[in-house]
């Protein structure tokens, strides 16, 4: 009996030690994550790299199956959809006409202005592997990584609009922080008026438009494009349309189809400002304006072009 008790005590002590050790380990990890964030995020990228591609065999069929089930449900609304599509098609025809006219006009104006479009802007297309967002963080994992020359900060788009930026790159996977994540901040331009503003994610489907220079000139329905002021994104990428929410704040209805993020394009801007060498801070600060000078030029040009048509 005494022996049994001893064993039990021993077990209890071991359990306490394990518990204490694990608590300390977790606290340490969180502390290190806070203090030396890049190192832990690199570790995270490696963990993701090690696990997610291996799950692809399960992830892909499951995703496809659920999506097919969703599509199947929509068969029941076939008639409605048909009607809706017809209406949309009609609208599109008129838009197409308008687009062709604008394209010709644009070509003429570009020639007049002698604008050189950035020829070094290439893109690489990847598949969305996984939705790594929890309720509170919005991000997806992409099957592109450093081996595809993907780097932190690059812009990711679906066919139409901006989706987010790369944050966290592994060898063959990378994470896209969506515009709706609360950590996402993107400088944008509201189109006809040319107002600068900041697109701030707040975990809702439509991010907030904040710090508008002159809110009177912004109207719901205005186009929102990236301004390129951060030196990360090229300017002029379509983001979405301005909308007013119930509290009277400006939000942006995103152009990208967030419901179906399947293929994303990562825009690889030319490496014009090579990543600043980790030497003197003062020098790096001085070097930055040089790096930003190039995008700033294109921004000015891009802004100048759309401003002409309204007067036309």
């Amino acid at each position: 009996m005494a022996r049994y008790r001893e064993d039990e005590n021993f077990g209890l002590v071991v359990r306490r030690i394990v518990l204490g050790g694990l608590i300390v380990l977790c606290l340490l990890l969180v502390a290190v994550w806070r203090i030396d964030n890049p190192r832990i995020e690199r570790l995270r990228a490696q963990v993701v790299e090690a696990i997610v591609p291996r799950l692809e065999w399960a992830l892909v069929p499951l995703t496809v199956m659920t999506r097919m089930a969703g599509d199947f449900q929509s068969y029941s609304r076939l008639y409605e959809q048909n009607q809706q599509l017809r209406r949309e098609l009609q609208q599109m025809r008129s838009w197409r006409e308008a687009a062709i006219q604008l394209e010709q006009e644009n070509a003429r104006l570009l020639e007049l202005n002698n604008v050189r479009l950035d020829p070094e802007l290439t893109f690489v297309t990847g598949t969305v592997l996984a939705d790594s967002g929890t309720t509170f963080r919005r991000s997806v994992l992409l099957n592109l990584g450093s081996q595809d020359d993907v780097r932190d900060g690059l812009a990711a788009m679906d066919g139409i609009g901006l989706v987010g930026r790369i944050a966290g790159v592994g060898e063959s996977t990378s994470r896209v922080l969506l515009l709706s994540d609360s950590a996402s901040l993107v400088p944008v331009t509201v189109q006809p008026s040319g107002q600068r503003a900041l697109l701030v994610g707040d975990n809702s489907v439509a991010p907030l438009l904040e710090f508008v220079e002159n809110p009177d000139q912004v109207r719901p329905g205005d186009r929102v494009v990236s301004s390129g002021d951060d030196g990360l994104f090229p300017s002029g990428l379509l983001v979405g349309q301005v909308a007013l929410d119930r509290d009277g704040r400006f939000r942006v209805r995103l152009a990208a189809d967030y419901g179906r993020l399947e293929y994303l394009r990562v825009l690889r801007a030319q490496p014009r400002a090579p990543v600043a060498p980790p030497i003197p801070v003062g020098e790096a600060g001085a070097a930055q304006p040089d790096g930003e000078a190039a995008p700033a030029d294109t921004t000015a040009d891009a802004d100048a072009v759309p401003e002409v048509p309204p007067g036309d």
């Binding site: 380990l25 977790c26 990890l29 969180v30 832990i40 570790l43 790594s132 967002g133």
Partner: peptide, 23 residues
């Protein structure tokens, strides 16, 4: 702890935070 840590890493939570809660 092992399961919690892997999930923390995969779901982009501060690593260790939810693991500690689970433990």
């Amino acid at each position: 702890a092992v399961a919690g840590l892997v999930l923390d890493f995969l779901l982009f939570r501060p690593p260790g935070s939810w693991t500690l809660a689970l433990i």
